[in-house]
Design a binder for these strands. Structure first.
Lengths: 210, 210
DNA sequence: TACTTAACTTAACAGTGTTAAGTATCGGAG
DNA sequence: CTCCGATACTTAACACTGTTAAGTTAAGTA
């Protein structure tokens, strides 16, 4: 089965060729620069050729983000080594923040765009949900559960899921506000690092026992 | 000067006619449903007629949001009556959250969309910046300054602006995540009210002295 | 009455995502 | 070796989008 495999491989090659061209436009000029025609120009194919490999533009972007977010979740594998759960939580927050600032286009598409807009069709992610190695939310969940089991949270906090969501919300707030409004001179913005660090520290102080 | 004034008034009338049609589409079907042609259909004019009253689509949307956000800031005038600054802060947070959920389209355009996308031209807001009656940020600033002056914040917090931005970030995080990802079944979302309230309480506990 | 200008309309341009229809190439079956 | 059908494309077109150039109409003014 020589030619059969070769065709399969060639198909995969052109798929990643499209994906890479789309990614380059996506990260360098933002999602609105990713047009089917511009991708096609970049790889020297006709625009319609892309539709042979991806259902539509949405599917292409979804796969792109899926792939890059799996890589993101893997960043946490190093952090997982940190013994102290509080320090681990701190480090996870910092890693999350870093990723958001380094990949604003991805961040925006994944967390700042209503699903109704991105996913008209029933999008199916290939990320292994619940597996902390591929799912950053699950990773955070693990830390929080450990902290709660050890009685480190204030007594009125008994819901792991709620605590996770509150922490995520706060950190997401700093990142998304930075991405959306960093160039806005309405506000006398303090340095991003200070905002991020203070937010993490304050939310930790609010959640943990003294 | 009869006819002159009448023309002026008529001009203002068609302006608000356009604005109202745009708002209806905007709030009921989201910003992507606001097309010049759909607005034109609604008011039974040709699409190009709109350009006589607004520079372009962006200017139209900017004016729409500006106008509605002034109304939003005025909600705080009632809250300004609350004597205890902590209670006032709590109420302000709740009001902010309410507005976001009631006006997701406005919220998204104002706080979740990078300025580079909305404002290609130099947009000039007509909101009186720094005036707490028209500027919600300034209102929050006032509360935080009062709390800090009264020594209610933890000693390491000495920067009013930073504290304001941390509080805003946290609350914005809950609201924006709800708007963007409420339909996402990846996460076992706790009720929004619980998330909002817990976030506000935790951030207060983190910032204030015990 | 003649002129100007404000307030439009129609037609068109350049761009978008997407699809229908046609074409060439190539692996495998008879 | 030939023919067939699938694969991987291309070209042309459709239905949208924001926006503009040019033409029209009505009203106020001199």
């Amino acid at each position: 089965m020589g030619p059969r495999e070769r065709r399969e491989r060639e198909r995969e090659e052109i798929r990643t060729l499209i994906l890479d061209a789309a990614r380059e436009l996506f990260v360098s000029e933002g999602v609105e620069s990713v047009t089917m025609r511009r991708i096609a120009d970049k790889i020297e194919y006709s625009p319609t050729a892309i539709y042979f490999h991806f259902k539509d533009k949405e599917a292409l972007l979804a796969e792109l983000c899926d792939c890059d977010f799996r890589a993101f979740a893997q960043r946490f594998n190093v952090i997982a080594q940190i013994a102290d759960p509080v320090e681990r939580l701190r480090a996870a927050g910092a890693a999350y923040v870093d990723f958001g600032l380094e990949n604003p286009s991805h961040y925006r598409l994944m967390f700042m765009t209503p699903k109704a807009i991105t996913a008209k069709t029933t999008e199916v992610s290939t990320i292994d949900k619940g597996n902390p190695e591929e799912d950053a939310y699950a990773f955070l969940q693990g830390i929080v559960a450990e902290l709660m089991a050890k009685g480190r949270f204030r007594d009125e906090l008994t819901d792991v899921e709620l605590a996770v969501q509150v922490i995520w919300s706060a950190v997401h707030g700093v990142v998304s506000l930075e991405i959306a409004k960093c160039t806005d001179d309405w506000v006398a913005w303090r340095p991003f690092a200070a905002r991020a660090q203070t937010t993490i520290e304050m939310i930790l102080r609010g959640l943990l026992k003294e």
